[in-house]
Amino acid sequence: MMLEAKNVHKRFNGAEVLRGIDLQVEKGDVVAILGPSGSGKTTFLRCLNFLERADEGELVFEGVHYPMATATRQQIAQLRKKTAFVFQNYNLFLNKTVLQNVTLGLTVAGKMKKAEAKEIAIAALTRVGMAGKLDSYPSQLSGGQQQRVAIARGLASSPDIIFFDEPTSALDPELIGEVLAIMRELAREGMTMLVVTHEMDFARNVSNRVMFMEGGRVIESGPSGQFFSAPKEERSREFIRTILRQE
């Protein structure tokens, strides 16, 4: 088991948003986290990277235990070294060039030499097809390009798992494909990924597992083929029906 989250609880000013989430991720898994708006998908993902502090829960990552409510700054830093996070709205550093966006973590946090970091950054940017824009600033890029740079920024630190929070929801429809293509390629190369998404095509054909959430609970989780062809829960069936109708 690469990552295991147990009994994750989170409240926002009294309102319970996560009511005991469990998740197990094997190396190489691509898990699609599905669910209606407000079901707690983003909150759960953010808790796994300690961007949000869970009130209760246990995280085991690569054999190391992290008490989610009380993990120390050092523990969190150690976890983040091995993970990457891709945001819905990219969150590229606006005052940095494309190249600097990717090297910053390596040189400042990783104390790596500039030249070495640049080499790694260019390799990562090449993977996402953005090596031709090294000196551009985020404001000069399209949303799709920004998200590809954000993925390269995540890849640069060679994480063992990447968390994606609706990586294509902020994109114009014609730009979604270029980002999904990169994620599909990462999946093919064996990258472990946790993807909150509304892209049913991705969930069905790229992810190998699905976790379906509603109201802060896991309603159903299992192999994605089975989830889409033979969902066990009535709520899952309804959700799939609504989504398919929208598509």
Binding site: L51, F85, G154
Partner: peptide
């Protein structure tokens, strides 16, 4: 989000302030 992105690439509070937030 700028701050959070800084944390996610491994920067600490001071580093994120110095490299990202203060310049902006």
């Amino acid at each position: 989000g700028q701050m959070e992105a800084g944390y996610c690439v491994g920067l600490n509070y001071m580093q994120t302030m110095a490299h990202i937030v203060l310049p902006q």
